[in-house]
Amino acid sequence: MKIEKANAGFLTNFEVLDFLRSRGAKTDPMGCLGAVAASECKVYEYLLKTPSCNQTRESINEFVTRCDTFKLTNADKLNVINWRPSSAADAYAMIEECGKRFSKDDRGEACNEDERVEEFLELVKEAFPSPPPKPEEMTE
């Protein structure tokens, strides 16, 4: 693989997964021989267990467009796209200074921080499909 333009920007997990799919990555190690490196197959296999496995370009674009009122940084957006928070605790862990930033609405006026976080989580829920079940959830 050749680097065309160093530091051109960040990639979402979805974009990496899409790239690996286009190169022919598979979960079967024997099916990967020749087409892609074994390490790429491992990355592909890992990404299939993350929320990126069932995202689409449209859902990502919808989220980016609709989240403007929350004044998220590009790094915040990337974290949310990659990990799809489903609880307030997840949002606080992913978004830098979430409490401080969500205590003001898009006009800069004070508002209820908890309500803004719930509004944000509802946006995430509407924009992105449900994440894949975790292995321990599948056995129950």
Results as ranks from 00 to 15, higher is better:
residue 60 I to M: 12
residue 46 Y to D: 07
residue 59 S to Q: 12
residue 13 N to T: 03
residue 15 E to T: 10
residue 135 P to V: 14
residue 60 I to E: 14
residue 91 A to T: 11
residue 30 M to W: 10
residue 4 E to R: 15
residue 52 S to N: 01
residue 103 S to C: 05
residue 1 M to C: 12
residue 16 V to D: 10
residue 7 N to E: 15
residue 37 A to I: 07
residue 1 M to Q: 05
residue 90 D to I: 00
residue 124 V to P: 04
residue 116 R to K: 09
residue 88 A to V: 08
residue 83 W to Q: 05
residue 93 A to R: 11
residue 20 L to F: 13
residue 119 E to T: 10
residue 67 C to Q: 09
residue 29 P to G: 09
residue 13 N to D: 11
residue 106 D to S: 13
residue 15 E to I: 11
residue 46 Y to R: 03
residue 44 Y to D: 01
residue 78 L to T: 09
residue 80 V to D: 09
residue 130 S to A: 10
residue 106 D to R: 13
residue 60 I to C: 10
residue 52 S to R: 05
residue 85 P to G: 01
residue 122 E to N: 14
residue 23 R to I: 06
residue 118 E to R: 07
residue 32 C to N: 05
residue 111 C to P: 09
residue 57 R to M: 05
residue 117 V to M: 10
residue 116 R to F: 02
residue 136 E to I: 10
residue 111 C to D: 07
residue 93 A to N: 10
residue 56 T to L: 04
residue 36 V to Y: 07
residue 64 V to L: 15
residue 6 A to L: 14
residue 16 V to W: 04
residue 95 I to D: 01
residue 70 F to D: 08
residue 18 D to E: 15
residue 8 A to C: 12
residue 107 R to C: 07
residue 116 R to D: 02
residue 96 E to S: 03
residue 125 K to E: 04
residue 4 E to Y: 12
residue 39 S to C: 05
residue 51 P to K: 10
residue 40 E to H: 06
residue 83 W to H: 12
residue 70 F to K: 10
residue 38 A to N: 05
residue 75 A to C: 06
residue 7 N to C: 15
residue 122 E to Y: 03
residue 43 V to K: 11
residue 67 C to Y: 09
residue 47 L to F: 04
residue 94 M to V: 03
residue 137 E to V: 04
residue 73 T to S: 15
residue 91 A to W: 05
residue 95 I to F: 10
residue 75 A to L: 14
residue 71 K to S: 13
residue 18 D to N: 08
residue 103 S to H: 04
residue 35 A to Y: 06
residue 2 K to Q: 15
residue 31 G to I: 00
residue 23 R to G: 06
residue 120 F to M: 02
residue 33 L to Q: 11
residue 117 V to Q: 02
residue 89 A to R: 11
residue 50 T to R: 06
residue 95 I to A: 01
residue 47 L to A: 02
residue 44 Y to T: 04
residue 81 I to C: 14
residue 49 K to H: 07
residue 24 G to M: 02
residue 67 C to D: 07
residue 70 F to E: 11
residue 17 L to D: 12
residue 14 F to N: 01
residue 67 C to K: 09
residue 45 E to Q: 02
residue 56 T to I: 07
residue 1 M to G: 14
residue 123 L to Y: 05
residue 80 V to S: 08
residue 106 D to Q: 15
residue 110 A to D: 13
residue 9 G to R: 14
residue 62 E to I: 04
residue 82 N to C: 12
residue 125 K to F: 03
residue 134 K to E: 13
residue 12 T to L: 08
residue 131 P to D: 06
residue 79 N to L: 07
residue 49 K to G: 09
residue 40 E to R: 07
residue 108 G to Q: 12
residue 67 C to V: 12
residue 117 V to G: 02
residue 134 K to P: 00
residue 45 E to D: 12
residue 86 S to E: 06
residue 33 L to K: 09
residue 85 P to F: 00
residue 62 E to K: 12
residue 83 W to G: 01
residue 20 L to G: 05
residue 104 K to G: 00
residue 12 T to E: 03
residue 106 D to W: 13
residue 30 M to P: 00
residue 76 D to I: 05
residue 125 K to V: 00
residue 80 V to A: 12
residue 81 I to P: 15
residue 38 A to L: 13
residue 137 E to G: 04
residue 65 T to I: 03
residue 140 E to Y: 10
residue 133 P to D: 09
residue 24 G to C: 00
